[in-house]
Amino acid sequence: MGRFLLGRAATLALVLFGASVLIFIIVRALPGDPAIAMMTSNATPAEIEAMRRAIGLHLPLWQQYAVWVGSALTGDLGRSFMYSTGVSGLIADRFPVTLHVSLMALAIALLIAVPAGVFSATNKGGAVDHFWRVFAMIGISMPVFWQGLLMIMLFAVTLGWLPPGGYQPPSAGIGTTTAHVILPAICLGTAYAATITRMLRSSMLDVLGREHIAVARAHGVREATIIWNDALRNALIPTLTAAGFSFGYLLAGAVLTEVIFNLPGMGRLLYESILSRDYPLVQGLVLLNVAVFVMINFAMDALYAILDPRIRR
């Protein structure tokens, strides 16, 4: 197990290095000049050039990369052009918001998807199955901004039960923080619940059709035990993959959800940074996103190894 994990960790480091090079090149390939974005259209050409020099854009690309990676290795992701403050600090400020909403959204997604996927598979072709299939279809196809606005209109404007947006950290009290996060979490959670439900249903149907399930039934094992212990455990491997990557996408920040619900999270920060050509901030955020996905992949690999010992070999 140790050697398996070490091998995966080495791959992880290589992927991160490659990603850093790609991110650096792609960000600079974006059309537009950050100096113009910072100075507004009314700046003189001399002011724009002075700004380019001041933020280091006059240096050769390799030198810019070396400075960035060297600093990143010490935890310093550079200084945001737009906010005039450290990128690491900005990320540290925004990441907890995204993490909070993501965890809640994933919890909601799993709370819906696991029973829905199981009941749908065990009632294939029945009313329950049809209901969850329609649910999944709606969840996948409904635009998140539309769903978000409908929920705001219903729960915040019409009923007045919940605030229409904004963020309050857990330190503000469990009731307050939950009230602020529940709507975006439902909005995001239902979308991912739909995906995970479909995945789990397919996996469950596959597993329930295998021989060892038939043998268990022939031996008189209780149906509930077969479904929840034997079938679900095996069906969870591909489902965990889907859930893991869903979590990765959530942590990368859901731009539309954060805009609609006015959450100061990672997605909004990334969107703003791209529009303003804030190279250090874009690089820092994308690198973090890559790292999150790589780490989730690593965690998934470890989990597979635990669930299925054959994978370690």
Partner: peptide, 13 residues
Amino acid sequence: DAATQLANLRAGS
């Protein structure tokens, strides 16, 4: 977002 601003106004926040 302009629509969200309006929702916030109507909700009183």
